[in-house]
Design a protein around this nucleic acid. Structure first.
Length: 915
RNA sequence: GGGCCCUUAGCUCAGGUGGUUAGAGCACUGCGUUUACACCGCAGGUGUCGUCGGUUCGAGUCCGGCAGGGCCCA
C-alpha cells in the first residue's frame, strides 16, 4: 500500500479503502491447514434476513469481532463464518407478499417457474390471489429474495469492519443446511430421541401450527368468570339427599360441551361427599364425574372447577392424570367443530350444540352466555378479571389446545437423567458474564415436556419421512420410512419414498410424505454442525468442533443456546463450545429497550457514516458483555476523537523520528527507517519509565481480553494512550527533534544525540504497541497508520508482548512519567492561572516535589524544563521545604500536610517572562 | 409467586479477596491557536455511594430486611 502519510489526517473514508484491501489480500481468510490447537472457531448468530439490522446487532457483533481480532493477533487461526437465517415465518410471509405466491406442499415441483409478480413489498396479498406452488419452488423464491437482503447485510457488516471470512457463509434454508438438519433428525430418530406422539398440543389458530414451550409467552388479557349451575345426577342426589345445584366458575363457558369432569381439591371439606358421584352439564345434559386433584384451588371461585378438553394446560394435566375421556369441540381453525361429541346425545343437547357449531371461540362464548342466561343456569353477572393467557410469541390470538400427532425431540423435559446431563453441560460452559448460567439452569429445570419440533407450516426444512399406506390407504404412522443419509436433503412432499415410485403416492399400498416441517430452532440449533462441516467435511469438523465461542443475546439462551447444547449432547456427547459470550440490550436514553414502535430506531449504516465505523465500534466496545448499554452518540464522538488522535499522534511520532521522511520515498524506506530507529539504545529514565508503563498496560489488556473483558482492556489502553499523547510526547518533543529547525524534515539515518535517539526509539516502540492494542477495537485507523510504515496488515501482526517493553524499560519505574507529568501540569497551571499563553517562558520557579518523587523529577528534569519553557528550575524536596531555615518556603501558603501530600506538586517563587 | 441483574457526580459508567481524602469520560466554566491534532490542549467545581439494620477497629465493598427499575420463568 501507499507509504504516503496524509497532510491532514481523517478517519473518513477509511472503511471502503481498507475493506477493499482486506478482501483482495484475504486477510481474514481461514487457513484450513492449521491444527485444532491453532484454530479459534466462532459460532456466529445468523441474523434474520427478513428483518433489518439495528443498532443492537452492531453492538453485539462488534463484541464478537473484537474477540476475533484479538485471537487472530494472538496467533490463532480464526474460523469466523457468517450465516443468514432465512428459514421461518418472517421469510415465508415476505415471499408470499413479494411474489404473490403461497406454498402448497402437495404440489409437484415446477421447473423454471416464474412468479406472477415481483416486488409486492409491504402490502399483503389476499390468500385467494396467491398462486400455489410447491415447497421446492417456494424455497427457490426465498433464496432469490433473500440474496438481495444478504448482500445488503454483508455490506453493512463489512463497513462495520467485521473480520468475517466471507467465503464461509450459509443460509439456514439452503439445501446443504437442510441436509444437516435432516441428518441430525434421522440420527435422533434412530436413537429414539426423536419420536412422534398423539397428544394435546398448544396450537395457534392463526398460523395453524403447533407451538413449542420456548415460543410461548403470557399476556395479560381481560376475561370474565361466569358462574354456572350444574344439576346433581341421580347418584349424587342419592348420596346427599339434596337437589341443590353445584356452582362452578369458568372463564371459558363456550367449552361447556367439552366438559368431562368437575374437580375440587381432595382436602376441600365442601366436596368430600361428592367425589366419585356425578353432575349434569347445563344445556347439554351430559353426566360428568366429580373428581379430586391437588391442582384445584379451594379459594378460587366456589372451589369447584370444570375440566374441559381442553381449555388450558391444567386441563391437560387433569385429563392425563385422571384418565378422563376426550371430548374435543375445537377445530384447528379455532372454530367449534360441526359435530357434537358423542356424549351429547339428547335432542336438546344436540340442538344447543348446533347453535355453536362453526362459530369462533369468541362468538361461541357470546352465544352460549345468552343461551345459559335464557335457561336460567347462569348465576349473577360475570365478574370481569385480568388474567395471563398463553400466546404464541408471534401470534395475536390466544393459543388453543388441540390433539394432534406431533414430532418431539428429547430435551430432558421428561427424562431426569438427560436433564441432569444438560445441567452439567451448563456448569461446564464458560458463560460470560457467569450469572447468565442461571438463566440456562432455570430454563432446563423448568421444562415440562420434550421439545416439540414439528410445525404445520409449509416453508422450512421438511421432516424427512414417509409413511406406508395400508390396503385401505390409512397411513401407518408407527413405521415411518426414512431416506438414507446420502439422499439428503429430501422433500417428502415432492420426492417419492425410497422403494416407491411417485405414482404410488396416496394410493392404497403406497405411501404418503410427511407434510410437517421442523421448528426453525431445529435447524438453528445445529449451527456448529453446519459451519464446521459435520456432514460433508470431516477434516474441517475435526479442526473446528467443538467450537471456542458462541456469541449471542441473552433473550435466546432458552432457545438457541439450550437447543444447541441439546443437539450437540445427543449427537456428540459434548458441549458445542467452550465459551458463551452474552451481549446485553441497547437502551434508548429513556432506559427503554429500543423499539421500532417508539420510532427511536436509528439505521446502523447512517450511524456508521456519521461517526465512522471505528467510532461506533468504540461505543460498542465500551460496554461489557451481558450488560445493557445506553444508545449514546456522545460515546461515539469520543471514539471518533480517539481514532483521529491515533492518526495525528502517529503522524507526529513518524515525523519526529524521521520515519515519515524515509517512508515518503517508499514503504521499504519507512520499514528500514523504523528498524533503524528502534534499534537505538533507550537510555533516558523518562523513556524507560514510559515503556515500563506500556508493559503494565499490555499485561492488563491481555489479561482482560483473555477473560473476555474487552471493556477493561480498552479502558486501560486508552487511559495510558492519552497520558502518552498529552504528557510523554509533550515532554520529549524537543529532545526528539534534536535541534532540527522548524519544518525541516528529519533524516532518520543521520546520527543524532543519544538522548534524541532514545526518545525516537521509545516513541516508535510505544506507537507500535498502541496500534496493536487498539487494532481489535479500531481496525480502520490502526490499519491506516500501520500501512504508513509497516508491511502487511496489522490484523495479522502479533499481539504485543509485555516482555518487549519491559526488557527495554530495564527495571525502570513507571512513576518517572507520572512524576514528570505532574511537574509539567504544575508549570502549565502557573500559566493558566496567570492567563498567559503556554508559550510564555518561566524565568525561574521552585518545584516542591513529594519526597518519593524527587529522584524521578530530577531524572526527567531536562525534558520538564523544555516542555515547560523554564529557564531556571529548582527541584525542592517537600520535606526540606518545611525546614524554617530554608528560605521560608514552607510558610508561603498552606499547611505542612499539604506540602507533604505525596500526590501534590506545588510551585513557588514564580518569575514569568514579561509578555 | 420464584429466579437473576441493577440502584455511585446533572448524564453514561469504573470501583478483585473490606483499609486513609470514592474515580473516569461526557456535560458545564475559564484559559490557550504550542514545528501531530480546534474532530485540539490545559485548568477547575460537582457525591447523604437507593434505604434501614447487622458483622467489623474500619463497609460503596460482606450479610439481612425494605423500596424502586429491568429481564426471565410460573
Amino acid at each position: 500500500m501507499t507509504s504516503r502519510i496524509p497532510h491532514k489526517a481523517t478517519v473518513d473514508g477509511l472503511e471502503d479503502r481498507w475493506n477493499d484491501v482486506w478482501a483482495v489480500d484475504g486477510v481474514y481468510t481461514f487457513d484450513r491447514t492449521k491444527t485444532r490447537d491453532e484454530v479459534y472457531s466462532i459460532d456466529t448468530p445468523p441474523p434474520t434476513v427478513s428483518g433489518s439490522l439495528h443498532v443492537g446487532h452492531v453492538f453485539s457483533y462488534t463484541h464478537t469481532d473484537v474477540i476475533a481480532r484479538y485471537k487472530r493477533m494472538c496467533g490463532r487461526e480464526v474460523f469466523y463464518p457468517m450465516g443468514w437465517d432465512d428459514n421461518g415465518l418472517p421469510t415465508e410471509r415476505r415471499v408470499q407478499n413479494y411474489f404473490g405466491v403461497r406454498c402448497d406442499p402437495t404440489l409437484p415441483y415446477a421447473e423454471g417457474f416464474e412468479p406472477p409478480h415481483v416486488g409486492g413489498e409491504g402490502k399483503s396479498i389476499k390468500a385467494a390471489d396467491q398462486v400455489p406452488i410447491s415447497r421446492r419452488n417456494f424455497v427457490e423464491l426465498c433464496e432469490r429474495l433473500t440474496a438481495q437482503d444478504e448482500k445488503h447485510f454483508e455490506s453493512l457488516w463489512r463497513h462495520l469492519g467485521l473480520s468475517v471470512d466471507w467465503s464461509l457463509t450459509y443460509q439456514t434454508i439452503e439445501p446443504r443446511v437442510q441436509a444437516v438438519a435432516q441428518q441430525a433428525f434421522l440420527r435422533s430418530l434412530a436413537r429414539a430421541e426423536a419420536y412422534q406422539s398423539e397428544a394435546p398440543t398448544l396450537w395457534d389458530v392463526t398460523f395453524r401450527t403447533a407451538v413449542a414451550q420456548a415460543e410461548l409467552e403470557d399476556r395479560e388479557r381481560p376475561g370474565a368468570y361466569h358462574r354456572l349451575a350444574f344439576e346433581p345426577a341421580a347418584d349424587l342426589e342419592e348420596a346427599t339427599g339434596s337437589y341443590e345445584s353445584l356452582y362452578i366458575e369458568t372463564t371459558r363457558p363456550e367449552l361447556l360441551p367439552a366438559c368431562v369432569a368437575l374437580v375440587a381439591h381432595p382436602d376441600d371439606p365442601r366436596y368430600q361427599p361428592l367425589f366419585g358421584r356425578h353432575a349434569r352439564t347445563p344445556l347439554f345434559g351430559v353426566e360428568v364425574p366429580i373428581v379430586a386433584h391437588r391442582l384445584a384451588s379451594p379459594d378460587k371461585g366456589s372451589g369447584l372447577a370444570m375440566i374441559c378438553t381442553f381449555g388450558d394446560v391444567t386441563d391437560v394435566i387433569w385429563w392425563r392424570e385422571l384418565s378422563l375421556p376426550t371430548r374435543a369441540i375445537l377445530g384447528r381453525d379455532g372454530r367449534i367443530l360441526a359435530d357434537a361429541p358423542d356424549a351429547i346425545d339428547s335432542p336438546e343437547g344436540r340442538n344447543a350444540y348446533a347453535q355453536l357449531a362453526g362459530k369462533t371461540v369468541f362468538s361461541a362464548q357470546q352465544r352460549i352466555v345468552d343461551m345459559l342466561g335464557e335457561a336460567g343456569v347462569i348465576d349473577g353477572e360475570p365478574t370481569t378479571i385480568t388474567h395471563p393467557v398463553k400466546f404464541y410469541e408471534k401470534g395475536d390470538k390466544p393459543l388453543e389446545i388441540v390433539t394432534s400427532r406431533q414430532w418431539y425431540i428429547a430435551n430432558g423435559g421428561k427424562d431426569t437423567s438427560l436433564r441432569a446431563q444438560l445441567v452439567a453441560h451448563g456448569e461446564e460452559l464458560d458463560f460470560v458474564p457467569s450469572h447468565m448460567r442461571k438463566r440456562y439452569e432455570n430454563w432446563v429445570n423448568g421444562l415440562t415436556g420434550d421439545w416439540l419440533i414439528s410445525r404445520q407450516r409449509f416453508f422450512g426444512v421438511p421432516i424427512p419421512l414417509w409413511y406406508r399406506l395400508d390396503a385401505e390407504a390409512n397411513p401407518m404412522w408407527e413405521t415411518p420410512i426414512a431416506p438414507s443419509e446420502d439422499q439428503l436433503p429430501v422433500d417428502p412432499s415432492s420426492d417419492a419414498a425410497p422403494g416407491f415410485t411417485e405414482d404410488q403416492r396416496g394410493v392404497p399400498g403406497g405411501f404418503i410424505g410427511e407434510t410437517d416441517i421442523m421448528d426453525t430452532w431445529a435447524t438453528s440449533s445445529l449451527t456448529p454442525q453446519i459451519v464446521c462441516g459435520w456432514r460433508d467435511d470431516p477434516e474441517l469438523f475435526s479442526k473446528t468442533f467443538p467450537m471456542d465461542l458462541r456469541p449471542q443475546g441473552q433473550d435466546i439462551i432458552r432457545t438457541w443456546l439450550f437447543s444447541s447444547v441439546v443437539r450437540s449432547h445427543l449427537e456428540h456427547g459434548v458441549l458445542p463450545w467452550k465459551h458463551a459470550a452474552i451481549s446485553g440490550w441497547i437502551l434508548d436514553p429513556d432506559r427503554k429497550k429500543m423499539s421500532k414502535s417508539k420510532g427511536n430506531v436509528v439505521t446502523p449504516m447512517g450511524l456508521l457514516e456519521t461517526h465512522g465505523s471505528d467510532a461506533v465500534r468504540y461505543w460498542a466496545a465500551s460496554a461489557r458483555l451481558g450488560s445493557d448499554a445506553a444508545f449514546d452518540e456522545g460515546q461515539m464522538k469520543i471514539g471518533r476523537r480517539l481514532a483521529t488522535k491515533m492518526l495525528n499522534v502517529s503522524k507526529f511520532v513518524l515525523g519526529a523520528t524521521g520515519i515519515a521522511t524515509a517512508a515518503a520515498d517508499s514503504l521499504e524506506g519507512g520499514v528500514a527507517a523504523t528498524a533503524h530507529v528502534t534499534s537505538a539504545p533507550i537510555t533516558e529514565p523518562l523513556d524507560k519509565g514510559m515503556l515500563a508503563g506500556v508493559a503494565l498496560v499490555v499485561e492488563a489488556a491481555t489479561a482482560a481480553l483473555e477473560a473476555y473483558d474487552h471493556t477493561r482492556a480498552l479502558e486501560a489502553t486508552e487511559q495510558y494512550f492519552w497520558t502518552f499523547c498529552d504528557d510523554y510526547v509533550e515532554l520529549v518533543k524537543n529532545r526528539a527533534y534534536d535541534g532540527a529547525a522548524l519544518g525541516e524534515p528529519i533524516d532518520p539515518f543521520v546520527p543524532c544525540s543519544p538522548q534524541a535517539a532514545s526518545a525516537r526509539a521509545a516513541l516508535t516502540l510505544a506507537l507500535d504497541t498502541f496500534l496493536r492494542l487498539f487494532a481489535p477495537v479500531l481496525p480502520f485507523a490502526t490499519e491506516e497508520v500501520w500501512s504508513w510504515f509497516n508491511e502487511g496488515s496489522i490484523h495479522r501482526a502479533s499481539w504485543p508482548a509485555a516482555d518487549r517493553a519491559r526488557t527495554v524499560a530495564d527495571g525502570s519505574d513507571p512513576m518517572v512519567l507520572v512524576a514528570a507529568s505532574a511537574a509539567v501540569s504544575a508549570l502549565r497551571k502557573i500559566k493558566s492561572d496567570a492567563k498567559v499563553t503556554q508559550r510564555t517562558e518561566i524565568l525561574s520557579v521552585d518545584l516542591l516535589i513529594p519526597e518519593a518523587q524527587v529522584a524521578h523529577v530530577n531524572a526527567a528534569k531536562p525534558d520538564i524544563v523544555a516542555a515547560g519553557r523554564v529557564r531556571s528550575l529548582q527541584v525542592i524536596d517537600a520535606v526540606t521545604a518545611l525546614d524554617p531555615s530554608v528560605d521560608g518556603l514552607g510558610h508561603e501558603d498552606g499547611s505542612s500536610s499539604a506540602i507533604l501530600d505525596p500526590t501534590v506538586v506545588r510551585t513557588e517563587n514564580v518569575v514569568l517572562a514579561p509578555s
